[in-house]
Amino acid sequence: MAKVQGAIVVDTETCKGCEVCMPVCLENVIKMSKEVNRKGYHYAYMDKPEACTGCTNCAIVCPDRALSVYRVKVSA
């Protein structure tokens, strides 16, 4: 059975740390970092990268489009 695996890349300088992407992530992959960017915002990062399915839910709700999503099919 084909399984998908995904990954997100966060533009840390664009991210404003609004956390809107966190509740829409069905796998709870995203968390906010302790570090801040140049504007002083905590930015999103992948806390559990192995669980990401590349569903693009986080990217479509991101007001600043700081996320880009990648997805590959892997055979289990």
Binding site: Q5, G6, A7, V9, T56, R65, L67, V69, Y70
Partner: peptide
């Protein structure tokens, strides 16, 4: 995974 050919969403 993070390669241009696998990208499914960007700005």
């Amino acid at each position: 995974i993070i390669k241009p050919e696998n990208q499914v969403f960007c700005k």
